[in-house]
């Protein structure tokens, strides 16, 4: 049985760890503070992230640095149309055993790492994509009838290029739904760009220090689930999610934009994502409980990829962000 003092200690530990992580990341990554926070939240929640941004914004560097700081293994898979599932999961290869007999030995693929960067995931065929997504969901791969457990913690950060869609295989909605967060990488500001130039063209490469390890991350995952959540706050999250549904049902009043432009609203997995992420945010902020603000902050990364918009939205250039902003504006904290 834990005591209040222990809880206080772990809260402080979580907050300090996160502060250290941010400070360490800031040594090599310019800007993207919110993005780093959200990636870390996804990690402590056991989720995966879909990163969307133009090339050259530092996605790979960020993920690699995160692995280093957390002392976690990192692998990168460049997705191409000819990439096969076995290239990701690994395969059985024929080798000689010490007695000279021929045997099949499982050669682990790049998915066997704590942090996997799936670069341009939409360039691989759906078959290959689904192999990765299955690994994400089950946290294991089955090759030759034998199941192999993946690393724990395990996190996939898949990237997509939003502007180069030719020759790509967009992820099916069901697959997208399996990502905990969808994060957008914004182009750096003027100051940030200048600092990036300084960082990368002068001086010696920065050596990063380990701040946390896999055990800490797994421990935090437990702590996140312990964070108390008031029913009123939970109800707020539920109402927000329900407001993304265009269906008219008693007690379910969708926001006007959702009514007009959304084909399908968020799945229950979206609600889980919002609440868990809000709990993680509270923990990393050193707070013992979830606030309305936590829910609001985690709504956009959790739900933006879970809304299926109609053609009208495409035609009018309405994105999920705009719809979710309206939802947040319209839904009161306490009904």
């Amino acid at each position: 049985m834990e005591t209040v003092a222990e809880i206080e200690t772990r809260m402080q530990h979580a907050r300090h760890s996160f502060d250290d992580l941010k400070a360490e990341m800031a040594r090599i990554i310019v800007g993207h503070e919110a993005l780093i926070e959200q990636v870390f939240i996804a990690l402590v929640c056991g989720g995966h992230c879909l990163l969307e941004g133009v090339p050259g914004l530092g996605k790979t560097l960020m993920v690699r640095s995160l692995g280093e700081i957390l002392n976690l293994s990192f692998s990168r898979i460049q997705f191409t149309p000819d990439l096969m599932p076995a290239d990701i999961t690994g395969t059985n290869v024929l080798t000689d055993d010490p007695s000279g007999r021929k045997i099949f030995e499982f050669q682990r693929g790049p998915v066997f790492a704590h942090i996997v960067l799936a670069d341009e995931i939409n360039r691989a065929t759906p078959k290959t994509q689904s192999a990765l997504l299955e690994a994400m969901q089950e946290q294991s791969v089955t090759v030759g009838g034998k199941m192999h457990r993946l690393e724990n913690p395990f996190m996939v950060l898949a990237t997509q290029n939003p502007i180069e869609m030719e020759g790509t295989y967009p992820l099916p909605e069901a697959q997208v739904d399996r990502f905990f967060f969808k994060l957008l990488l914004q182009y750096p500001t003027r100051d940030e760009l200048a600092r990036i130039a300084d960082f990368t063209t002068a001086g010696a490469p920065v050596a990063l220090h380990e701040v946390l390890d896999a055990t800490d991350i797994l421990q935090m995952r437990q702590w996140v689930r312990d964070v108390p959540l008031a029913d009123i706050v939970k109800d707020y999250a539920v109402r927000l999610v329900l407001s993304t549904h265009p269906q008219r049902e008693p007690g379910r009043e969708a926001a006007p934009l959702a009514q007009k432009f959304v084909l399908y609203g968020s799945s229950p997995r979206g609600l889980q994502s919002v609440i868990l992420a809000a709990k993680a945010r509270a923990l990393l902020a050193g707070r013992p409980n979830v606030s309305f603000e936590d829910i609001r902050q985690m709504l956009l990364p959790s739900l933006r990829h879970r809304l299926i918009l109609n053609l009208e939205a495409d035609a009018e250039g309405i994105g999920a962000e705009k719809i979710l902003s309206e939802v947040v504006e319209r839904v009161p904290e306490v009904p």
Binding site: T3, D226, V227, P228, L229, A230, I232, V233, N289, V290
Partner: peptide, 21 residues
């Protein structure tokens, strides 16, 4: 940050977990 609201609910539920306390 909704500490009062959460505390009120926890009191109503007579929660005794360390996190609630």
């Amino acid at each position: 940050d909704e500490r009062t609201l959460t505390a009120w609910e926890l009191l109503e539920r007579n929660e005794s977990r360390a996190a609630a306390l």
